[in-house]
């Protein structure tokens, strides 16, 4: 598992780089974020939740059965919207209310 950062969408705010628990995301000379150590990503999605430009997606590595699907989140108040784009199943949107507890 790792992340993909879309340089064209990145606005260079650096928030992803700030929160990464492995200090794996850096800013390049043009102040665009990139993941310097893709194999070291834990898959926690902290960076994705920070990204207001929706420039970061995470995916499953092929070695753990990844099929090319990717996920990002969009925040709207208490609603965290998870957008999953998968070659097989198309786009799925799952809204999670942060004020609502898990059932299981």
């Amino acid at each position: 598992m790792s992340i993909l950062i879309d340089k064209n969408k990145c606005v260079g705010c650096g928030r992803c780089s700030l929160v990464c628990p492995g200090s794996l995301i850096k800013l390049d000379e043009n102040k665009r974020a990139y993941i310097k150590y893709p194999k070291d990503c834990w898959g926690c999605t902290s960076c994705i939740k920070e990204c207001k430009a929706y420039a970061i997606n995470f995916f499953l590595g092929a070695d753990i059965g990844g099929m090319g699907g990717r996920v990002h989140t969009e925040e709207n108040g208490d609603i965290l919207k998870w957008v999953i784009d998968s070659p097989e199943s198309g786009i799925s949107v799952i809204n999670i209310d942060r004020k609502e507890s898990n059932k299981y």
């Binding site: 898959g43 099929m67 699907g69 199943s89 059932k103």
Partner: peptide
């Protein structure tokens, strides 16, 4: 939903 709140990779796996 529960997995998105702790291990989103599993949800991605199910969906993809």
């Amino acid at each position: 939903k529960a997995y998105l709140n702790m291990a989103p990779s599993q949800t991605l796996k199910w969906i993809e």
